[in-house]
């Protein structure tokens, strides 16, 4: 079922760079990578013409060094393993309540992972994305253009940084252990160096 949907979308936008990503795990949940400039169009097409009326899950992924090898079979040209040009990604899991099919996975990627790269918001299409896009902004720092209320969701307003990014450094307030070991010992050493 979802394969036909993928085909019809790719046929609808022949001149756009829409890619079909084949999942290599036994789950068999394939996804569609859509360029940001037509994401809203594709979303309306999916909702109004193909009946995907239920946006279940919105989440972000931080590909700090590019996509890891082996996750998608046909994603070979995306792999920039070990390179510096990582990017952020938003994943939408769509279902159809009328036709009872899904999930259809829609992915949109930013070009860079600098502070606050912008992607189009799909909240006007699916209201249920509202809080989840705010959460993605809070934790990953993707700015959603066109979102009605783009603020942090979980952390406080004065908070700096985006904690779910892979390179986020947590505040140095770890539990004081009587027998520190491993990672904690490392952190204590750097801390001792700082205060001296």
């Amino acid at each position: 079922m979802t394969d036909q949907v993928f085909k019809s979308i790719i046929e609808k936008y022949p001149d756009k760079d829409i890619r079909f990503l084949e999942n290599s795990s036994p789950s068999g949940q394939h996804s569609l990578l859509v360029p940001p400039e037509i994401a809203v169009d594709v979303a309306y097409f999916l909702r109004d013409c193909l009946g995907f009326d239920y946006c279940s899950n919105v989440t972000g992924v931080d590909w700090i060094n590019g996509v890891k090898k082996g996750i998608w079979k046909s994603d070979s040209n995306e792999e920039i393993d070990g390179g510096k040009s990582g990017f952020l990604e938003v994943v939408y899991h769509l279902y159809s309540v009328q036709k009872k099919v899904g999930p259809l996975i829609l992915r949109v990627r930013t070009k860079t992972r600098e502070d606050r790269p912008e992607l189009p918001s799909l909240t006007p299409v699916w209201k249920s994305a509202e809080f989840q896009e705010r959460e993605v902004f809070d934790l990953f720092g993707i700015w959603f253009g066109g979102h009605p209320d783009m603020r942090r969701l979980l952390m406080w307003e004065e908070f700096e940084g985006h904690p779910m990014r892979k390179d986020y450094i947590p505040p140095d307030d770890y539990e004081y252990e009587p027998t520190p070991h491993g990672q904690i010992l490392e952190r204590i050493k750097t801390k001792a160096g700082k205060t001296e």
Partner: peptide
């Protein structure tokens, strides 16, 4: 698990 993605 093998590399891949899942939503359940």
């Amino acid at each position: 698990p093998p590399p891949g993605e899942v939503y359940a």
